[in-house]
């Protein structure tokens, strides 16, 4: 009986594990009705560095934006330690892509990092000394203390990336989402970011990182999610990061998915 009446209204609000830092259940995301992420089911393990890997247009950034409620879900749900994002904003930190903002904005590195604390402050209350100190400490942690008063456009690309990381650190979250933090940074920044990630892991934080460089996956991450509109495979790097799975992820063999997505977009529009 249950199978007969299994309809689209039965929307998997079921069992999110409250011990799981990020659990994604049956998530589908569409742009203009065209699905870009299909049926994502994932439970992130606690206290791990997790790489999200896949070709361009695989929906990696979309995935983390959708998790954080920045994009609407066509279906499904996301829970952070068993609760929805709204209730857990305090414990989720975000590092967007560097290109997403205008770096000519009149602000110093310290100003930007202090913004990481805004979520904790009520309306109309300016940041206090304690927030500034937290921001300074975060800058210190990414090795940028000496640049705290420099205008952000006069920082190098790698330094700007570190400022964004420091902003996320200032949030003092339990779970971090990072969108391509390694993109276009110099070698020393890359090393600094890796050190920082390991420090976060040592403190029991869970970090999900969109990553574009397959070469470094084994070295940087504990877990990996191979994504190409769907999850191809996910799990510990040594088990999942195989030649066969990579071929599935990067070889565009599954044209049917595309066809179905196109049909949905076309019929949806017409």
């Amino acid at each position: 009986m249950s199978n007969i009446f299994a309809s689209r209204h039965q929307n998997g609000g079921d069992d999110h594990d409250p011990a799981c830092p990020v659990s994604i259940h049956d998530m589908t995301v569409a742009y203009h009705r065209r699905p870009v992420l299909w049926d994502i089911d994932y439970a992130a393990p606690q206290g791990k560095l997790i790489g999200i890997v896949g070709p361009n247009g695989a929906g990696k950034s979309t995935l983390i934006k959708a998790c954080m409620g920045l994009l609407p879900l066509a279906s499904g749900s996301v829970r952070f330690y068993g609760k929805p994002y709204r209730a857990q904003r305090q414990i989720v930190g975000y590092v967007p892509q560097r290109e997403s903002v205008d770096w000519d904005f009149p602000a110093s590195a310290l100003d930007v990092v202090t913004m990481g604390r805004y979520g904790r402050l009520p309306w109309c209350i300016p940041p206090r000394r304690r927030d500034k100190n937290a921001a300074l400490a975060a800058l210190e942690q990414v090795g940028m203390a000496e640049f705290s008063h420099r205008q952000i456009s006069r920082l190098s690309g790698g330094q700007q990336q570190r400022v964004f990381l420091a902003r996320a650190l200032a949030q003092d979250a339990l779970i971090y989402f990072m969108d391509e933090p390694f993109a276009g940074v110099d070698a020393s920044t890359e090393a600094a970011i890796v050190t920082l990630l390991r420090a976060l892991k040592a403190r029991g934080r869970t970090v999900l990182i969109v990553h574009h460089d397959i070469q470094t996956v084994r070295e940087y991450f504990d877990e990996v999610m191979l994504l190409n509109m769907r999850i191809i495979a996910a799990g510990p790097v040594e088990e999942v990061f195989t030649q066969e799975n990579l071929q599935k992820t990067y070889g565009g063999r599954l044209t049917l998915l595309d066809k179905a997505a196109q049909a949905m977009a076309r019929i949806g529009r017409h």
């Binding site: 309809s7 049956d26 589908t28 049926d39 999850i231 996910a234 599935k248 179905a260 049909a263 019929i267």
Partner: peptide, 22 residues
């Protein structure tokens, strides 16, 4: 066959797509 998805979740996916399959 192609994706790692729990069998119990297959139905929802197909439910969404079936209308568009030629």
């Amino acid at each position: 066959k192609h994706f790692k998805l729990p069998t119990s979740h297959l139905h929802l996916s197909a439910e969404r797509v079936e209308h568009y399959i030629t």
